[in-house]
Design a protein around this nucleic acid. Structure first.
Length: 558
RNA sequence: UGGGGAAUCGUCUAACGGUAGGACAGCGGACUCUGACUCCGCCAGUCUAGGUUCGAAUCCUAGUUCCCCAGCCA
């Protein structure tokens, strides 16, 4: 293979992982590479996983290697089939394909068990009868070395007998563990005789009740990598301390291949939390409406909200891969989403908070069809017709009775354009007993059909609108950040920082008729408002839209 | 007082002893039938102190700050 065959496209982001892979290929250390994405099926994937997925699958793709999807299913107490299924759906949605390379750590349980016996026979592992508390006390602290367990020097025969009886189910949960015999005085706590197996009388989603002892991460991960001939085992920074242990097992076992572990910094984003533990709590406590709640940073949530997979891939590419902890500005994510949606989303009109407008000089009962462009940047997207009549709705915030100087929209006496329709002039604001504006009386200029004045006069504002009669009622769900601060939990209480206004439901919105058959999950732009998609709860009898993201609004900012 | 990492514009990220560059954000302007988009311009950085070198973000020394590790989680 030449450099030309293996070098990634020049426009793709480079990083230290890709540098290593490229060097390993160039030096002949590897003829081809194998990576893997190893999720634990104990929750849904979130945008942090997207970084890992794009990295592992992306590198494999760029260097013509292979990327396995391997479930790290070594803890049946937490893992479920639902998560195995959702993870596969999410990885596919993100745009990656593992082909035939779908594996489970549980596929290797028998081999791992045999390797455990191998270590026992070589005097490198022992069964410990200590309780969890005793183990913890013996482990020492960060600054003090640990102490050897009284069970540490059992004979290989006794250890083997005990371990086999553990497997046979003779002991209850927690009664004993199998530990590697390494070094209780190591500065690296992971080397202080780490646990390899624990007794867990649990039903496993894949192996059922076949096992009642399960290997833990450290005893499963490296060997699984080896069995799959993974060349580059890429994980996050917190596993760096585990690398010496990862290598100790590979060094002391007759494994078929020698993978190398490399670590990168996990993704953090302002105003959000990417912790499966926390997201699980949100779901279990019903603080959100499930894993795919559009407020969740899960791939399922983002998908339901209308975020295109390509935008996520692009976001992750722009963020880059490095070894320094960092927190990406949420606006970088917003930018990636808007950038994609601006190109792809058809334009429509929807009024979130309707204000009725009566066009006094427009003939009663008359309806005409006005032509609207579906995407100004893409002529091939075509046009559509929007009915127009004497009564329409505009956005409440597009009218002010006493406007400040830079307010270009409607106020008594001002003229504005209705997008693709006419120029109208506000004549009067009708109020209710409480003094609230309930209706606008306007006049239109019949000469301005389509939106242009024959005399060439200009108006500063173009407003979106919908016809009163033919528009459709819709519920619109507007999402705000799940947290009120960029660094949630920094004051010690994550829950205290949850944004009570993360969901805003607008029940009286009106949308143009073309939105009747909006495809679920596919965002369109409501002009001047943002991007919206039909929610999974939406149906022809009750339209429900999620706001994917708002448009930038330099007026609101000022 | 143990072990392991990391420090570059406000944020994310390049640089591999040779002009500190890009993206996001911000600010200013142009354009506009979306106060969107697009375009143009501006702002702004090598943790500190020494040293090596013609030349240091990069190499050396000493500090400082931040992150991770004491699950029978991953």
């Amino acid at each position: 293979m030449t450099d030309k065959d293996t070098a990634p496209a020049p426009d793709v982001g480079r990083d230290f992982i890709r540098d290593i892979v490229e060097a390993d290929l160039a030096s002949g250390k590897h003829k081809s590479i194998v990576t893997r994405f190893p999720p634990e099926p104990n929750g849904y994937l979130h945008i942090g996983h997207a970084k890992s997925i794009c990295l592992n699958f992306g590198v494999a793709e760029e260097f013509k290697g292979q990327c396995n999807l391997r479930f790290d299913d070594t803890n049946p107490a937490k893992e479920e089939q639902e998560f195995i299924d959702s993870i596969q759906a999410d990885v596919r949605w993100l745009g990656f394909d593992w082909g035939k390379n779908l594996f489970y750590a549980s596929d290797y349980f028998e081999q791992l068990y045999l390797w455990a016996e191998h270590l026992i026979q070589n005097g490198k592992a022992y069964v410990d009868d200590s309780t969890a508390a005793e183990l913890s006390a013996l482990r020492g602290t960060l600054t003090e070395p640990g102490k050897e367990s009284p069970y540490r020097n059992r004979s290989a025969e006794e250890n083997l007998d005990l371990f086999r009886r553990m497997r046979a189910g003779e002991f209850p949960n927690g009664a004993r563990v199998l530990r590697a015999k390494i070094d209780m005085t190591s500065g690296n706590i992971n080397l202080r005789d780490p646990v390899m197996y624990r007794i867990l009388h649990e039903h496993h989603p894949r192996t059922g009740d076949k096992w009642c002892i399960y290997p833990n991460y450290d005893f499963a991960h490296g060997q699984s990598d080896s069995l799959e001939h993974v060349t580059h085992s890429v994980c996050t920074l917190e596993f760096e301390d585990h690398k010496p242990l990862y290598e100790w097992f590979l060094d002391n076992l007759p494994v078929p291949a020698r993978p190398r572990q490399y670590e990168f910094a996990r993704l953090n984003i302002g105003y959000t939390v990417l912790s499966k533990r926390f997201l699980t709590t949100l779901v279990k406590d019903n603080r959100v409406d499930g894993w795919d709640d559009p407020r969740m940073p899960t791939l399922a949530g983002l998908r339901r909200r209308g975020v295109p997979a390509a935008a996520l891939r692009d976001f992750v590419r722009k963020v880059g891969v490095a070894r320094a902890n960092s927190t990406v500005d949420i606006q970088m994510y917003d930018h990636a989403v808007r950038e994609h949606l601006n190109k792809s989303a058809p334009r429509r009109m929807g009024v979130l908070r309707p204000l009725k407008v009566v066009i006094e000089n427009y003939p009663e009962g008359q309806v005409e069809e006005l032509e609207a462009i579906n995407n100004p940047d893409d002529p091939s997207a075509g046009t559509r017709k929007i009915p127009f009549g004497r009564e329409i709705y505009v956005e409440q915030e597009d009218f002010m009775e006493n406007p400040p100087k830079k307010f270009y929209r409607l106020s008594p006496g001002t003229e504005v354009r209705l997008r693709y329709a006419y120029l109208i002039t506000c004549r009067e604001a009708v109020k209710n007993a409480a003094g609230e504006v309930t209706e606008l009386r306007c006049t239109y200029d019949p000469e301005t059909r389509g939106g242009n004045a024959p005399d060439g006069r200009k108006v500063k504002a173009t407003l979106h609108w919908v016809p009163a009669e033919q528009s459709l009622p819709a519920e619109i769900r507007v999402y705000n950040p799940l947290f009120t601060r960029p660094d949630p939990g920094a004051n010690g209480d994550l829950f205290a920082d949850i944004n009570p206004e993360s969901l805003e439901v607008l029940k009286d919105a009106r949308v143009e008729p073309a939105l009747a058959d909006a495809e679920i999950g596919v965002a369109v732009q409501f002009e001047r408002q943002g991007y919206f998609c039909a929610d999974t709860d939406s149906n022809p009898g009750k339209l429900i839209f999620n706001r994917t993201i708002g448009l930038r609004d330099s007026y609101a900012k000022a």
